[in-house]
């Protein structure tokens, strides 16, 4: 069973005139893949990611997520599914202000029915992104790279089936960006499915497969031949 299966996916917006943000897009993503969705702004890559991330609904076509036809789910069911199956990493971090690193990572567990020890689980994932020493720091006391690592930990805390990373390095310096990409690659090596949205070729080449979008259409779907293995030391030089 594929993780994500879309067929003739469409998304239109009506605001006086009808615009097609997404036209007849079809592809399949299997578990364990590392896919980069590329394209210039306005290409529909964000719209695609919002639909795949269950934040938005398609106007037409079929979307099977983990065997479920999501078009039949209501808002609350989508929220539950997002909570259990999907982790998000945003360009602008989107951490809660005036809240500790630990509490930020615990956040998805508040909305979960999982009866696990939230604090313990959050500490585990924070350790895996190398932030054990920052648990009680507030989010305004840590660097941008650290913020994004908190966001990754938050995406991992619910053992999501897929992690969506929307321009995760866009607001970071190259060294921090490289660290984030390295973590994402390691997570993928551990078996996590990762879908990356980016417009930088350099970042996209860290993935194993690239979907290129243009004017709301999928224009190419290729495996990355020379996959870039991120080495942080290289970047510093």
């Amino acid at each position: 069973m594929s993780l994500i299966e879309v067929k003739n996916l469409k998304r239109t917006f009506e605001d006086g005139v009808k615009t097609y943000a997404l036209k007849d897009t079809s592809f399949v993503i299997e578990k364990g893949e590392f896919v980069a969705i590329m394209g210039p702004s306005g290409s529909g890559k964000s719209t695609l990611m919002h639909i795949l991330g269950l934040l938005d609904r398609a106007s037409g076509g079929k979307f099977i997520f983990n065997g479920k036809d999501v078009s039949k789910l209501d808002d609350n069911e989508l929220a539950s599914l997002r909570n259990e199956e999907i982790g998000f990493v945003f360009q602008s971090f989107n951490l809660l202000q005036r809240t500790t690193v630990l509490d930020n990572v615990i956040l998805p567990l508040i909305y979960s029915d999982n009866k696990i020890n939230a604090k313990k689980r959050a500490e585990e994932v924070l350790e895996s992104v190398g932030l054990s020493h920052r648990l009680d720091h507030y989010t305004n006391q840590i660097s941008g790279g650290e913020k994004q690592r908190v966001a990754i930990a938050r995406a991992l805390v619910n053992k999501a089936s897929v992690i969506f990373a929307d321009e995760p390095t866009g607001n970071l310096d190259s060294k921090s960006g490289a660290q984030i990409m390295k973590i994402l690659q390691r997570l993928n090596d551990d078996g996590n499915t990762i879908i990356l949205v980016t417009h930088e070729t350099y970042t996209a080449e860290c993935a194993k497969r690239i979907l290129k979008m243009k004017d709301g259409e999928l224009v190419s779907d290729e495996k990355v031949v020379n996959r870039r293995k991120v080495n942080v030391e290289d970047v510093i030089k």
Partner: peptide, 16 residues
Amino acid sequence: TREVGLRKALGAKNFH
């Protein structure tokens, strides 16, 4: 507003 968006993205339902 952004916080509400984030919470919803992370799985908060309307009643939360």
